[in-house]
Deep mutational scan, measured.
Amino acid sequence: EVRVRALYDYEGQEHDELSFKAGDELTKMEDEDEQGWCKGRLDNGQVGLYPANYVEAIQ
């Protein structure tokens, strides 16, 4: 698992997508798939998908 930080706001479009604001931190659980989606977990425990290019790894 990798900690990542959102670069942009994202509003989930489907029930299985996460929503977050730029600057939020979350945990990447799985690497992106061929469509460019990652599985992650918000700090509130919600698990879902998000676009991989909306986040950067925290060093």
Rank of each mutant, 00 (worst) to 15 (best):
K39H: 04
L26K: 02
C38E: 14
K28R: 10
E25C: 06
G48S: 01
S19L: 03
S19N: 12
T27Y: 15
F20A: 01
A22M: 07
M29E: 07
Y10A: 12
D43A: 10
D24Q: 15
E1K: 12
Q46N: 14
D43P: 09
E17K: 08
R5N: 03
Q35P: 09
G48N: 01
E25W: 12
S19K: 08
D16W: 09
N53W: 05
L42A: 11
E11A: 13
E32R: 15
C38Q: 15
D9G: 04
E32G: 12
L42H: 11
V55T: 14
K39R: 14
E17C: 13
E11G: 07
K39N: 07
E34W: 11
N53Y: 09
E32P: 04
G48D: 00
L18M: 04
G40W: 00
R5F: 05
C38V: 11
E11R: 08
G36S: 06
A52L: 07
Y10L: 10
Y50R: 01
E56M: 13
Y8D: 15
V2T: 07
G23I: 00
S19Q: 01
W37T: 08
R41D: 00
Y54G: 06
L26W: 13
H15A: 14
E1I: 10
R41G: 03
V4G: 04
L18E: 02
D33F: 08
W37I: 08
T27G: 04
I58Y: 05
C38L: 03
G48F: 00
Y54N: 12
G45H: 06
P51S: 06
N44E: 06
R41I: 04
V47F: 07
E30M: 10
I58P: 15
H15L: 13
L18G: 01
Q59T: 11
Q13L: 10
G23E: 04
A57L: 14
G36V: 06
D24F: 05
Q13Y: 03
A52G: 14
D9H: 04
E56D: 14
V4S: 05
G48T: 00
M29P: 01
E32N: 06
L49T: 14
L26F: 10
V55I: 03
D31F: 11
C38D: 01
D9P: 07
D9R: 04
G12H: 07
Y50S: 01
E56Y: 05
G48V: 00
A52M: 06
Q59N: 15
P51C: 08
D33Y: 07
E30S: 11
D24P: 01
A52Y: 03
N44F: 03
T27E: 10
L18F: 08
G48K: 02
Y54W: 03
Q46R: 14
L7F: 04
P51D: 05
G48C: 00
K28D: 01
Y8A: 14
V2D: 15
R41P: 01
Y50A: 05
Q35K: 15
E56Q: 09
A57R: 13
F20Q: 01
E34K: 15
T27P: 00
C38W: 02
E1H: 03
V2N: 14
L7H: 05
R5C: 04
Y10T: 02
D43I: 08
K39V: 14
V2S: 15
G23Q: 04
H15E: 10
D31L: 10
C38F: 03
Q46S: 13
R3K: 13
L49W: 15
E17Q: 13
D33L: 13
E25G: 07
D24V: 10
D24Y: 03
G45Y: 02
Y10Q: 02
Y8H: 10
E14K: 15
V55A: 13
N53G: 11
D31P: 15
D9Q: 02
H15V: 09
E11H: 06
I58C: 09
V47N: 06
Y10V: 04
G36D: 08
F20T: 00
E30Y: 15
E11I: 13
R41M: 09
D33A: 12
L42S: 07
G40C: 03
G48W: 00
W37Q: 07
L18C: 02
E25P: 06
Q35N: 09
A52T: 11
E1N: 05
E17P: 04
E56G: 08
R5I: 08
D9K: 03
K28A: 09
Q13K: 07
G40Y: 00
D24K: 00
E17L: 08
V4Q: 05
I58G: 12
F20K: 01
K28W: 12
D33K: 07
V2I: 13
Q13E: 10
Y10E: 02
R5K: 04
D9A: 06
Q59S: 15
V47D: 05
V55D: 04
N53Q: 15
A6R: 00
V2M: 15
D9S: 07
H15Q: 11
G45P: 00
K28G: 05
Q13D: 06
E11C: 06
V4F: 11
E1A: 04
R41S: 11
P51L: 08
D24W: 07
R3S: 05
E1T: 08
E17R: 12
L42K: 09
Q35E: 15
D31C: 08
Q35G: 13
K28P: 05
D43H: 07
V55Y: 01
E34M: 13
M29D: 04
R41C: 02
A22K: 08
E17D: 05
A22D: 04
P51G: 02
Y50I: 15
G45V: 00
Q35T: 15
G12W: 01
Q46T: 12
Y54V: 10
D24C: 11
K21H: 15
Y50L: 11
V4R: 02
K28L: 10
Q46K: 13
M29Y: 07
G23R: 05
R3L: 06
E1R: 03
D9L: 01
Y8S: 09
G48P: 00
E11T: 12
N44P: 02
Q59H: 13
R41V: 07
E14Q: 12
E17I: 08
T27A: 13
D43K: 13
L26E: 01
G40A: 05
Y54L: 13
V55C: 15
K21L: 11
D9V: 01
L18Q: 01
V4M: 14
Y54H: 11
M29V: 11
L7N: 05
L49E: 05
D43G: 09
V4K: 03
N53I: 15
G36M: 05
V55N: 00
L26V: 10
G36C: 05
K28Y: 10
Y8L: 12
P51I: 05
L26S: 01
N53S: 13
N44Q: 06
V47Y: 13
D31V: 11
A6N: 00
N44W: 02
A6L: 00
G45M: 05
H15T: 11
M29N: 04
R5E: 02
R41T: 04
P51Q: 12
A57M: 11
F20D: 01
Y10K: 08
E25S: 07
D24A: 10
K39Y: 10
S19P: 06
D33E: 14
Q46H: 15
H15D: 08
K21A: 13
E25I: 10
G45K: 10
N53R: 11
T27F: 08
D31A: 14
Q59L: 13
V47S: 13
E32V: 11
W37L: 14
L7M: 14
G23C: 03
D24H: 10
C38G: 09
E17G: 09
K21S: 10
Q35R: 14
D24N: 09
H15M: 12
E32Y: 13
L18R: 00
G23L: 05
V2Q: 05
D16S: 12
G45S: 05
A52S: 14
E25F: 11
Q35Y: 05
K39G: 03
L7W: 01
R41F: 04
C38Y: 04
E34R: 07
Q46E: 02
Y8G: 06
E14F: 08
Y54S: 12
H15C: 06
D16H: 11
A52W: 10
Y54E: 03
G36P: 06
E11N: 15
K21W: 05
D33I: 11
L49P: 04
E25T: 12
G45N: 11
G45W: 02
E32W: 10
K28C: 14
Y50P: 00
R3V: 04
A22P: 03
E32S: 10
G45F: 02
